[in-house]
Design a protein around this nucleic acid. Structure first.
Lengths: 216, 216, 216, 216
DNA sequence: AATGAATGAGTATTCATTCAT
DNA sequence: GATGAATGAATACTCATTCAT
């Protein structure tokens, strides 16, 4: 019927299931990352993916399952990046600095992750709980923090007895909140926290606070 | 159709404008605190308030303006509480501990505030920007942090040069994130962060980290 | 577009809740009577009623509840008609004849009832079971049959021991099936059963069969 | 993508056109018998048949034509059973009893036929009219009734002048209605008509009524 | 013959908002 | 001030059907 010059058009030309699925998933991550679960629209996801709306259901079953898939893909991505972190050669204080940097940088560059994380919690972590993948996979970052704390304590540069998960939460909190609530704080305090200089300064602040806070 | 005299209408035992308005506002705070802006339903707010849906529009104009009003009321409340904090008599380290405690406790007891804060940012801080009230009122907590840092530096128990706003963000981040993402983290890490013992332990952790991190 | 002043137009000009509700219910009875539960369309019902589609939900909650309401209205109507039957003055055989006539005539004139009855059973009598009204109200017709059988037995014109409900089912079956499956049978047997003459002849047949069948 | 030789495809252990077609047809009869034309799903039919949905279209063209095929198969089956009835050796009254029994038993055991028959009529006998097969084949049962009536009249055990088709409709009605509307009536009258004892009793009732009704 | 991928038109239902009294 | 009735534009999801291989 066509070399597909005109008329119907669309993603159908592909006939590439995996690619189509991937396109839809990427579109979903973008949409949910911007608008959240409630604000995200299946129509818009299909459109973003250049796909037929029904295909979304064909591949993912429902909006909720699609959201779960998007969340899992996001988690898989960040964990893959975490896994690439190689701090074995670094002394504990440098390693800890790198960990904080990583956390800050990732969130700075992936605002969509922030939205999804916040949204997921707002919905009672419903999808995470239902995701075997999210529950199974351990967090490489937590492992790295634990290893770094241990090494630091052995070398006498960090005090002992610091709980890795609690430190993980602290670091994640300081970095997450900065971007998550940056807009509101910028408005209230009249200081543009989104500016690179502000980010740079804050980075130094939390590194200093953390390293000093871990001294023996 | 019934025995009542005429004209008036029905069960509106109220006829108390301010009380009705307050009821609706409270209902809105509850609803938005639970479900967010997108998830919140005007119908449900009216129902919670025991009021007619149209009254919501009569008093607040639109869902969005109602949300703004709810947000402002929430901010007003937390700031009033912050204003009650009297740390003048306390030495800097105790004062700082109190500040952290306050932040943690308030969030622990006001999960609805967490939801609204997260939601507001997810929507680009639209309502905060459009609100004169929220902008004008400076955060008493920030002032207290600044004063405490100053006093601590003078007394030599805190190092100098710490930016009050950055410390404010750090503390807010560590406390906010703990409750905001507690559900997800509890699920993923298999450790119940909502348990009082966990909160207690985490409180000690961030107090220690912060106080140690502020040492000269 | 029509005689109404201008602007939006539509059923809204009425502001007559009860009338609106009644219009929708009537439209639902017509629609479901023609197309059944699965085939019936909420859109079309709204249109038939000259009402907004949302009003259907405002008044009835869901398609299913609307169907139930339509079913109840239909049952209420037929039972009201049954209740008007006064056979006290008639001798048993004439009374029985009237009962058969009534059953045949009602079904002949209310094909929609046939469809709804068939449909309801096809769906496992779900709505009837969920309806307090339909269950509570006993069938006046069954009472009349019972009374007529009793009287006939006393007078010696009917044999004793005939179960009223079974006779009720027989009569209902003979009349219902004639109209319910008339189209199919007309097609298969090449004889127009919908023709008044056919109906007339069949009426005589079942009256004869029944009266003869009840002889002592 | 996998190790299989080439081209062929997958699990279709079949490659047996007629068997596949038969499977689909059987699945369609089951599906339509349970859910009706509107409620029946092509997807589900394919699934029930263990076949690909597209195959349904390959063999039957459309849902409607598949329905027609299912209807024809159902008619063919019942007519084959009717044809097996050999009443020649029986005296008229016994023969008539057998006919009624057959009708009752068949419907009792083939609820799906009831649904299809009801559904077909609800749709204006559209498919039957379009089916040459359904129109061509005469009903053996009607012939048997006619023969039995004739013989009975000759022998003086039945009155003359009874129209075979009308008697056919009566018997079909009494038996069909009992099962078709059994659920609704059970609910309304608070008597379980589906119980074997009820069926047994009703069987006696209609045999008695009919035989008595046919007496000269 | 057989299959998975793709599509368009529908389908019940929801929701913020406005009208009329 | 207060209320019930009415509206239009979405919104997630379904379904019969066709395309490409």
């Amino acid at each position: 019927m066509d070399a597909r010059p005109a008329g119907k058009g669309g993603a159908q030309a592909k006939r590439n299931p995996e690619a189509t699925r991937a396109l839809i998933l990427a579109a979903a991550r973008a949409e949910f990352g911007e608008k959240g679960l409630d604000g995200g629209r299946v129509d818009r996801i299909a459109q973003r993916a250049g796909a037929n709306k029904q295909l979304v259901y064909y591949y993912f079953g429902s909006k909720d399952e699609l959201y779960k898939a998007a969340l899992e893909a996001t988690y898989a991505e960040i964990r893959a990046l975490e896994r690439e972190l190689d701090l074995t050669a670094l002394p504990p204080r440098e390693a800890m600095t790198r960990l904080i940097d990583f956390s800050l940088d990732y969130l700075d560059e992936h605002r969509d992750f922030i939205r999804m994380l916040a949204d997921e919690n707002a919905h009672g972590a419903r999808h995470v709980r239902g995701s075997e993948m999210a529950l199974r996979t351990n967090s490489p970052l937590l492992e790295l923090i634990a290893a770094t704390l241990r090494k630091g304590a052995e070398e006498g540069v960090f005090r002992a007895g610091v709980d890795p998960l609690e430190l993980y939460v602290s670091i994640a909190g300081m970095t997450f909140f900065y971007f998550a609530n940056g807009l509101t704080m910028s408005a209230i305090f009249g200081r543009d926290l989104t500016h690179p200089k502000s980010v740079h300064s804050y980075r130094k602040h939390i590194v200093d606070l953390t390293l000093a806070g871990l001294r023996p």
